[in-house]
Design a protein around this nucleic acid. Sequence first.
RNA 1: GCGCCCGUGGUGAAAUGGAUAUCAUAGCAGCCUCCGAAGCUGUUGGUACAGGUUCGAUUCCUGUCGGGCGCACCA
Length: 538
Amino acid sequence: MKLSELEKDLKQQTMRIFSLGEESVKNFALTVPPPHIKADVSLSWPLTAAKILHKPPLKIAEELAAALKGEFSCGAIRPGFVNINLSDRFLLEEAPEISKPGYFAENTVENSKKPKTVLEFVSANPTGPMHLASGRGATLGDSMARIMRALGEDISTEFYVNNVGHQVERLGASLKARYNKQEPPEDGYHGDYLITMAEQLPPEAAGWTQEQFSSYAVEKILNRHKEDMKLFGVNFDCWFLESSLHEQGIPKKTLEDIKKKGLSYEKDGAVWFGASSELGSDDKDRVLVKNDGRNTYFLNDIANHLNKYARGFDRAIDIFGADHHGYVARLAAALEALGHGKETFRVIIHQQVALLRDGQTIKMSKRAGEFISLRDLVEEVGLDACRFFFASRGPNTHLNFDVDLAKKKSNDNPVFYVQYVHARICSIFANAAEKDIDADTAFNTDKAELNAEERALLAKLMWLERVLADCVRDFSPHHITTYLTELAALFHSFYDKHKVLDPENMKETSKRLYILKAVKKVLAGTLALLGVSAPEKM
RNA sequence: GCGCCCGUGGUGAAAUGGAUAUCAUAGCAGCCUCCGAAGCUGUUGGUACAGGUUCGAUUCCUGUCGGGCGCACCA
């Protein structure tokens, strides 16, 4: 029985016991008891039910504890909790199920109404190498896509490439200047990467127009970004080129649509979007078409999002860095005015990554050429440590990345603590094979008895379902890293206290191998959700 | 100035309004004839400040202080 099924069962029993309706138990939830309480799960519902039932919480808890039935024992405790101890058999039978692929997907999303979601993230401009801050968005987006898919959701991932516009022209101009051994223009890109690129240009570049320099540079950099993402373990279902939007005339159609709906007006030779204030957004009116006749980014981005719906997606989620947060209200208001309600569009903001060097924060800027590339970071610190590090903080934490400490940090990174568990378990199974102990031998969960450490491990496995749900609720993978660290600690304590392989006592041995098999699979499975490896040896 | 985000042991983080605030690292004291000591056990130390709502606040509200970011006919 899954944790969620247990919760549902207890909830229904509670409704029956007190003759209550659905409304009265809406905040009925199983929670993890604090460490000093010896119980597997807790209920705090009696505390909230005091008003409804007009009874003291402790009294409610006592009545509830006396009446609940199932594979557990339970008791009431001040000020009004019910603490539940699950039976050994319950915990043992659940263990192998948890690691089955798709197990949690079964009851989280109903197949019939599975909305198609497109998740856009990173979307770094193809004007320079990807810097380490992109690692944060990449980790967040990719881990969340994996988690949501594990829970049965239909997710497509997308990298939007701004391969047209002003900045691309500036890029071409800058490369051309480098080719001619000149400094790039004031508003161009000054990083060293263009010097290197200029040196590798083919001979025919001598006769190139600026447009040719632009498209050459964009193609080179885009390919590099694709490699970077691959190295970072991130696979996008689609690299969506902005140019393809223009080829199909979609921004043009979008503008006509906006005009037709009376959402725009002309002023000072430009076309403005004028619906922001009517929609309750305190955002100012914004320009759609500049007085030189060119589209703004805003118009093109509205077109991009409308196109997502047109491509068959029911919901669009974007992950932006906090430097774009001011833009969100504008875009949301525009989409809503065009008939796409709030529930179809969501933006996740993650805070910026600041670079710390010699105790000083440095503002990273592509144009100034001051940054650490994502590739440098991965090569220096390692992919697993990088991804675990980025995944282990919520999107709203402000992150200072200390470059000097990055390498040292990796040694302190909890990822090794977690991976060590996996390696240790693999080692135990290797030893079992050497001693001719059959790790797959049938194990009878009925008569088994568990010690405290074994119970703690199994109970932890059971909570995985809640952890994944929390990740989706908060749109953050950090609950998994916390969970893994705690699971690892439980394992190490268990390992230290109990020897697994004991040829003299096969009953204990087969029980422990059975448990470790589940722990190993859960570890490998959840690490995979973070894009982190589960090594057999370290 | 206006808006968004954030302030938790020395450092980095966790905690759907619930019980004695959890973990990692650093510090201190211990633990290897025994499946990997990249480990275990014990210990020191914390919710920025002031109010409010609540049976109960790290969590919600108001204010103060401190920090990050944004307020373009840039993308």
